[in-house]
Design a protein around this nucleic acid. Structure first.
Lengths: 346, 346
DNA sequence: TTGTATGCGTTATCAC
DNA sequence: GTGATAACGCATACAA
């Protein structure tokens, strides 16, 4: 269902409410601002009249003077992918509860940031910007977005951009992937796995490179060889084809670590339906994220879980705290991961 | 990555650009409005200076006078579900190309419209509202949204709300499901199917009730009995449990029509992994939508396709045409469906 | 083609 | 606690 709202006929305005309720324009403004001082009965009268006239304060006009648009922009390369759509959903819900609306922008799928898009977005004056593309240095964005304070999602203890010495202040969300990965490797080792492959995600993704780095590190700590790297891009189709290559052209593997759950599905389907191999009998498969589909019976995927609710809560905390105290010191939140054991290792 | 933009330090404004470029304030305004008349070299100078100063016109201030916010609101109960996330993605892309930004709101999952939410949303002055909840009568929304012109998605020739005689003008997108359903029923009949079950979606969904009505009608036309109705809600888990009920408590079926693809996945998994039945050997399964996951090898679902690109293009046409001609007669777009034959019937 | 004056709907400042 | 006034950043009507 689609509605188009005609703006030619003006809506009820604060002046109209004021006239109707026999009060001043300012009183109406105060009635809608809980911390403003106004006699209780007067406030109730105004709110009552406002309801009758179907009046709502105009956020654009309000933003013009308060410098708060109550808009949070999200830049997403692919709204459809399960993990990101979940995150959009949860963030929107959480921010909506705090009085912010989500402004959605689509970026190009190569994880780059179109300067045109940034300029365009800036016009809407978002109070905060959440970018699902990870490979932009803070200084570039700061140039576009005035005094922006970035929050970077950092995987394990790696410094983004190779330990950049950026001048920018930025907040951090640390995701400790090591724990989940260690549990996964221990499980694989317990089943006698020797040859591990890593199906990568998009090369530009920090999540991907850090997963690869940490898996290699943990395998070594357990006395296992470095993984064979299979190039992927987080999608099912690429994962499917890459798996066929790995087993038909390459030397195969005892276990495949996929950079995300959707990729793991592609690996599983290629193994079972095309290569006639058994999962977990012939090959073990482990994913990352723990999206709802991983619990579907056809996949029943063993995966390293990043708790979405925890992650969103942490992000919302970071956003709101900086919004309330713009000049505070860098803020930090930390998240842990754990292995969810299902049926693709065993 | 999250950025918070500090509004305490004001951005570059049109006045600043004007002063810097030695022109008047208005000239700057005109430079950013392609149809305004301005000497070419002057325009270029202004745009150049604007770039240097990192200036972008403030959409909020602009909206205050033009009565166009360039915001399109979407009210969605569940951003995560594949069909809806696809539609959000495609609509956002298409609207972004036309200069509109997507404003996302989460509704309660029972398909109802929270009056508080509507009031809240109204404050942002969207130029258009796309509601993914279907059971609201136009008059109710019109009450909230001034002179809104709804676009209703109508399935086959059914009148929404039982042929309501509403006073409201509204545009329509007709989705002709009959063709796809007829192809599906013919295919099932060809394989000797007798007892068909329909796994419903949410009861409040018009798409659901019309799918059920049309399937019943087409089955009758082919001399087949009315389908057994299995209550569902478009989700995997409910579909899974409902299928167990149908075959363990009820009398089973030769074929299951699911109200959407995700539901069909639940049906398939319950049949194969819990009831030890073969698909399509023992039971045929058909879905609705044709989401990307339906092409995944584990499901390989035969389904009635509603072409997303066509649908979004039609919606965008309706939105833009009414935006440009608010007083035009009711607009109509029509969409057809067709069966995509894969591996769950045979 | 260009500039001046005015208004969009709201909140902040300052009196009372 | 309350009301007048200015200001936010921009586009438009009108006059030049």
């Amino acid at each position: 269902m689609v509605l188009r709202t005609d703006k030619k006929l003006p809506r009820a305005t604060a002046d109209l409410v004021a006239r109707e309720a026999n009060v001043s324009r300012v009183a109406v403004s105060r009635a809608f601002n809980p911390n403003a001082s106004l006699k209780q009965e007067k406030r109730e009268l105004i709110l009552q009249v406002a309801r009758e006239l179907n009046y709502t304060p105009d956020m654009a006009a309000r933003a013009l003077v308060t410098k708060r648009s109550h808009l949070v922009a999200m830049i997403v390369p692919d709204v459809c992918s399960p993990w990101e759509s979940q995150e959009i959903d949860a963030l929107t819900t959480a921010l909506q509860a705090e009085g912010f609306a989500t402004l959605l922008f689509k970026a190009k799928s190569d994880f780059s940031m179109d300067p045109m898009l940034l300029t365009y977005m800036r016009g809407f004056n978002p109070d905060s910007v959440i970018a699902f593309t990870e490979n932009i240095e803070p200084d570039i964005l700061t140039g576009f977005l005035d005094r922006a304070v970035p929050i970077y999602v950092i995987y394990d203890d790696a410094e983004p951009f190779g330990g950049m010495t950026t001048s920018s202040l930025f907040d951090r969300l640390f995701v400790q992937q090591k724990e989940g990965i260690e549990q996964a490797v221990a499980l694989l080792k317990g089943y006698g796995v020797n040859r591990v492959a890593y199906l990568s995600g998009k090369q530009q993704s920090l999540a991907n490179t850090e997963r690869q780095r940490m898996i290699t590190q943990v395998l070594a700590a357990h006395g296992l060889a470095a993984p064979v790297i299979v190039p992927g891009d987080f999608t099912y189709d690429t994962a499917y084809r890459a798996t066929l290559d790995l087993f038909r052209v390459g030397n195969g593997a005892d276990a495949v670590f996929a950079s995300n759950d959707v990729g793991a599905f592609g690996v599983i389907d290629a193994l079972r339906h095309d290569l006639q191999l058994s999962v977990p009998g012939d090959v073990k498969v482990i994913g990352f994220d723990d999206i709802p589909q991983s619990n579907w019976k056809s996949y029943n995927l063993t995966t390293v879980r990043i708790d979405l609710e925890d992650r969103v809560r942490a992000l919302v905390r970071l956003i709101l705290r900086r919004l309330k105290a713009p000049d505070s010191a860098p803020l930090v939140e930390t998240l842990t991961t754990r292995l969810v054991v299902r049926g693709t290792v065993g």
